[in-house]
Amino acid sequence: MAMKIPFYALFALLIPLAHAQQPVAPDVLVKSITEEVVAILKQDKDIQAGDTKKAADLIETKIVPHFNFNRMTRIAMGRNWRLASPEQQKVLAEEFKTLLVRTYSTALSNYRDQQIDYKPLRAKPEDTEVSVRSEVKQSGSSQPVAIDYEMEKTPNGWKVYDVKVGGVSLVTTYRDTFASEIRERGVDGLIKSLAAKNRQPERSKGGKA
């Protein structure tokens, strides 16, 4: 039976190995994912009309695999991370991920024709942490918005652990909210707040539902 396995199937086994040895450069990765997602957005009338569910599916399949949500949650928790048990840490990372994905899908459903420029990567080949810088030109405003992706090298390729929009870190912006929730209601209180927020109906395009 073993003889019937086609020869080329062996290459399929080699591909993951090759991938692990030679990860795609971080700037190339960000650019290719963004271009792929933008191409889908431009065609998808549902997402343009404010279908955040469909936008969330797009994010789940195309974007989520390239993010390190565990580290994002750790940064947002700061010194409180140690107060949480391993079980709580797992739930926190899961809830925070859901919140970020939902936020991102709201942003995507607002997407209109925007031009994205990438700045040259300032990094040495041996660097394990880099920022990939881009600028988004919006219609109606002459000042472009800077979007920076903070990335780390892992055995599974480069992963994003923070996104900065106009210098504002998506992750550290949550730090004070998390700290005050924990101060008032403990780690479980924070988990409850996150879960409650994630159960709320998603906001439709352009503001209050």
Binding site: R102, A107, D176, T177, S180, G206, G207
Partner: peptide, 25 residues
């Protein structure tokens, strides 16, 4: 308008979220 709809979705507590974002900005 678009930015404020994202904040509505993102923030657990809108006051602290806007404060942190503003100070960083």
């Amino acid at each position: 308008l678009d930015a404020s709809s994202v904040i509505e979705q993102a923030a657990l507590d809108k006051y602290t979220f806007v404060r942190e974002a503003w100070l960083q900005r």
